[in-house]
Amino acid sequence: MNAESDDHTGQAAPGERAEQAAERPSAWRRLAARLIDWAIHTLIVAVVATILLTTSIGEDWSGRALGTLFFGLTALLRGIFEIGFVGAKGATPGKLVMSLRVRTSDDGTSLVGWSAATVRGVLIDLPTLFGGLYYIVLIAAPNLNDTAFALWTILWVATWVFWLVEVLSIFGNSARQGLHDKVAKSVVVSK
């Protein structure tokens, strides 16, 4: 407890930013929570894709159609998963397991709400969202010329580079905020 806090409550004293008073989890705990979420999400996508594929036995599934199904489902379910849980509960299942919560950066205690949850979800899942779009474009335009195909591929790879930098940014600052946290004005705190 620092000198500015109220000795009886442990709450931030007037003038002290609440986001600084809230305990910040290590970047490794945040990464562990993300890995748990990915495991749950991957299981859900696998089950849904299996149901869709087994109910359409006899259909001619090309590689592109399977890619579109996979990335489309992944993008849709990741968005529902990330945005839904953070917007409604203030944490994804992985964060709940790791005793983490997403809160507003202005007070460190309030739920972020749906708009901030949407911003966070879109930014953290940009490669998945763009990957789904990438495959839909490939399906819609199977005769895409080499230049257009190369451009779409470069953009897709760029989203993954953005994601890598974005995720690694939580290791490089004392607030342990990724870009998605900064833009959404959110922080991840320990319960």
Rank of each mutant, 00 (worst) to 15 (best):
T55R: 07
R78K: 09
R64C: 05
A49R: 05
G84A: 12
V86L: 13
Y135S: 12
S56T: 15
D60Y: 05
D146W: 00
W156M: 08
T54D: 08
S115E: 12
S56A: 12
F149W: 06
L144T: 12
L69K: 07
I51Q: 08
T74A: 13
L52H: 03
A116I: 01
T50L: 14
N143P: 04
V137F: 13
L77I: 15
G132D: 05
I80K: 04
W38L: 13
G67A: 07
S110G: 01
D106C: 04
Y134T: 07
T147Q: 12
A117T: 01
L151C: 05
Y135R: 13
T128D: 08
I83T: 13
L53P: 00
V48I: 15
G72K: 03
D60M: 10
A116N: 05
H41L: 15
L126R: 02
R103M: 09
M98F: 01
T55C: 05
N145S: 12
G121W: 04
A39K: 00
V102Q: 04
G87K: 15
K95R: 10
V47Q: 04
R78V: 12
F71K: 10
V86R: 14
G67F: 02
L100F: 01
S105N: 08
V137R: 08
T109A: 06
L100A: 00
T92E: 02
S56I: 03
Y135M: 14
V119K: 02
F149S: 13
G79K: 11
N143R: 11
E59V: 13
G113K: 04
D37K: 00
A65Q: 10
F71R: 08
I83V: 14
V137Y: 09
W61R: 11
R64W: 14
D37H: 00
D60E: 13
T159A: 11
I154K: 08
L69P: 06
L138F: 14
G131C: 09
K89W: 11
A141C: 01
L96D: 08
N145T: 07
F85Y: 15
I80G: 12
G63V: 03
G87N: 09
T159D: 07
V97L: 10
L126P: 03
V45N: 06
N145Y: 05
V112R: 04
G58D: 04
R64H: 09
F70G: 09
P127N: 09
A158I: 12
E59P: 01
V122I: 15
D106L: 11
T74H: 15
L66M: 11
N145E: 11
P127F: 06
I136L: 15
V119E: 01
